[in-house]
Design a protein around this nucleic acid. Sequence first.
RNA 1: GCCGACGUAGCUUAGCUGGUGGAGCGGCUGAUUCGUAAUCAGCAGGUCGAGGGUUCAAAUCCCUCCGUCGGCUCCA
Length: 620
Amino acid sequence: MKLLLIHSDYIEYEVKNKAISNPEEIKLKKDRLEEVLTVFIAVEKIDEKSPNQTVLDASNEIEKTAEQLKVKNIMLYPYAHLSSNLGSPKIAKEILIELEYNLKNKYYNVKRSPFGWYKAFKISCKGHPLSELSRDIIAGKEKESIEKEKEIKSEWKILTPEGEFIDAEKFDFSDYEDLKLLYEYESKGSRKIIGEPAHVKMMQSLELVDYEPASDSGNFRWYPKGRMIKGLLEQHINNIVRDIGGMQVETPIMYDIEHPALSAYLKKFPARQYRVRSDDKEFFLRFAACFGQYMIAKDMTISYRNLPLRMYELTHYSFRREQSGETSGLRRLRCFTMPDLHTFCADLNQSTEEFERQFITSMKWMNDLKLHHEVAIRFVKEFFDNNKELAKNLAKLARKPILIELWDEQYFYFVMKFEFNVIDSMKKASALSTVQIDVENAERFNISYTDEKGDKKYPYVLHTSISGSIDRCVYAILEREAIKIKQGQKPIIPFWISPTQIRLIPIKDEFVTLCNDFIDNLNELSKNYTIRIDIDDRDESVGRKIRDAEKEWIPIIIVIGDMEKDTKTYKPRFRNSEIGENDKSYILNDLNKLIIEKIKDYPQQKIPLPIYISKRPKFK
RNA sequence: GCCGACGUAGCUUAGCUGGUGGAGCGGCUGAUUCGUAAUCAGCAGGUCGAGGGUUCAAAUCCCUCCGUCGGCUCCA
């Protein structure tokens, strides 16, 4: 149902001609109300499925507005033009009559203009900010799902690796600046430093990823280098999840909003969704891979012997229609890529065991990206009281103090979760890895297994994202480098995801051939590996080419000239000492070993652009 | 979504109180063949975010919209 509410000095109408074959019988040909909330209404097809709820919701919405405006008079005015998907006139009329009755019961002075007639009307809108409002009523669903959660009551603690619980307010943060920032950010919403996040300029100037003005905000375009980085991260996370037993599936990105199993879940999940219409049906775009996997799981025959059972999907994409003011570079998108693992566990024991394993795996991921992170663990208090040892184990694994949040009751579908948070150059915290223990969705979706005695049981479900959103990982890497720049260090991205790993710079045109030979020889030495090398064959000075390579953050730069031709040794310019030792000569074989050492444990891809720089267009 | 700031060439930007837009980088052409962060010269490139209004005259003033950023809110 679509509503258009107008706070008016007056509204008056006069009935003219029939608009439909069986219009409502007319009692008054003309009518008028003053100091009135005029409500233009279009009843839509979707309202026919739950007319009673629609009436209730609409009535509440109108009442809320009337109360705010302190008006007692309401004019209900059927207005078909508000919607392109109208319901049948018969039901629409009934809904309107019901709505009138409902509002009268709330002691409003309600009038309703007749249904099914062309009418002339005059209205005077007051014109203050609240005087014109539109509302979209969808029986009980969207409204509840985006409704604000109850005020959450939290207790905050710090847990040390030694197993000590300390009231967060009493903890000495002097050696733990980032943990302090996380605590303040999470508990008080403090925003110490404001400004544009540094990664946005970087992602553009490095030609990784950019805004797409032709799409909705928070939907980005990825250029070749960025796409390759993202692809490598995706490949790596797929491998890691497979290693811990994840069985990869793929599920649809849109789901029927009316599907009985989904509507209940939608209510528990307060994210706004994108809506898609197809014929008469309405669909929402998934915000995670949960449903798709639940739908598979509920049809599966699962024995206790199969548990823990791990189902995995790399969601390409998930959609969350965040409020326009809260999308921010790659930190929060409306369309993102995220690995989503669901682990079905027999009992609490198995769940916590698995939880710890996934905690360790997440640590590995953060380590592979060299991301510093702070750990937050959140519990429903009752669950915490029974599982304190689990928390202590996790703090021991993290080897540093961690933040604990305790909720007085269960606000979400999970009883416990952890997150790894990174702190960016603006001192904002963002969550990456997370695992949640879910105690209610198995039953809701009728996912069950058969236990040793042949009885049907509902498993616990762990919701896991080992890496968090891949886009957000790119954000975290760039933000970490922004912090390094502030500290006067050279920025660099991990070697295994560098779009160019080695840049060759021939001193004159004639050495381009030698560069080609260099690549061939190196490939010959490392047949099982893919090393990304390119050649700056432009007609530019050597100084210029070095500068451009440095601006691209290329980790290894090698100038090729007479010296290299004669001695067959190379003096690479390493971006930092972690990659290699500067001012040292290498023969090809040693260089090869050094590089393979850095890439052997990671996925590899070919260079995403022409190897000759002169052949490359500018994307930005 | 609300409040605020901003939007000038592909990028970065100058343009004061209104009088039909300047530059650097990048691109193109030519010269230059170079040893570790910018070789030189010339040329092209602008419905000044979009639409409307005020005015003899608008990048400049006003309104609406779009986009970006920031704050609020929100964040599984």
